[in-house]
Computed example of a mutant assay.
Amino acid sequence: MPTSRDPASAKTVEGPAAAVADVPAGASIAVGGFGLSGNPETAIQALRDLGVGDLTVVSNNCGVDDFGLGILLANRQVRKMVSSYVGENKIFEQQFLSGELEVELVPQGTLAERLRAGGAGIPAFYTPAGVGTPIADGKETREIDGREYLLEHGITTDFAIVRAWKGDTAGNLVYRKTARNFNPLVATAGRITIAEVEELVPVGELDPDHVHTPGIYVQRIFRSPGLEKRIERRTVREVAA
């Protein structure tokens, strides 16, 4: 819960456990990150420790076996994943093939736009992505200017969890480089958006022109007690002898 009645810090919570404490079983959660870049690591760990299950998780991918969202899968807390890329997680594969995990695969651009649309209050939109593939099964189609399009629906969720580089106590967020990825879109899609930040500053210290997510979208914010920032695939250049 908020740590102060002061409007300037009313969104600040003590840490990840407090931020996710009221997430119930069966909740839908949108989660930022791309691969392991920009993952809200400590909030995900707090969800694992909370132990709530039957979750529907919307995220570009599902981490790896022992990190990121993969730890929720390993703990059998996820009922359904709405994702674009899932190829780095063996637990995901096993649970999907066994029928334990429901999966909705979404083209990456469509997933990004569904989150953006949901956050903007747009209920649905047409896209050519997926026409003529299994993605189109059961979906409304429409021909526009001689081309066929699918109707896709915007995504909103009960909660959204994102990670930013800097944030202020009003919830304004600044992301850093590649870690920006899906986070701004996810932040708009949650009815309750939780932000973990590497640096938490007072209102007025962020240049308004540098803010990527306005604080109106964020209901809770905390400074992360520590981020591992694991590298998903470490690649080095081979130098000829």
Rank of each mutant, 00 (worst) to 15 (best):
V186S: 09
G171D: 14
G154H: 03
G121W: 04
V131Y: 10
R142M: 12
N181D: 12
G154N: 05
I161H: 01
G118C: 10
P184K: 06
T178D: 07
L185P: 00
V162Y: 14
F182C: 01
T127D: 15
A117S: 15
A187D: 00
D158C: 09
A179Y: 10
T141S: 12
K166H: 11
R142A: 13
K177I: 08
V131D: 02
R147E: 15
D168L: 14
P128L: 09
R142D: 02
A129E: 15
A112G: 12
R142F: 09
A136R: 02
R116A: 14
T110A: 07
R147P: 06
H153D: 06
A124D: 13
R142Y: 05
E148L: 12
T127S: 15
T156S: 03
A120I: 02
E148N: 14
E143T: 09
G121V: 05
L115Y: 00
T141M: 13
L115Q: 03
A189G: 00
A120M: 10
R180E: 15
A160N: 08
A164C: 15
D158M: 08
K166C: 04
G138V: 08
R163Y: 07
Y175A: 05
I135G: 04
A189Q: 00
I122Q: 14
W165H: 15
K139A: 01
G118S: 04
I161L: 12
I135C: 05
A136F: 00
R176L: 14
Y149I: 10
R114N: 02
A117K: 11
G130E: 07
G132S: 08
A179K: 13
N181V: 01
A170K: 02
R114I: 00
R163K: 14
A164V: 11
G119N: 11
R176F: 13
I135K: 13
I155Y: 01
K177L: 14
G121C: 08
F125W: 06
G118F: 01
G132E: 13
A187R: 00
E113N: 10
Y175R: 00
A170S: 02
A124G: 05
I144R: 14
N172W: 06
G132V: 08
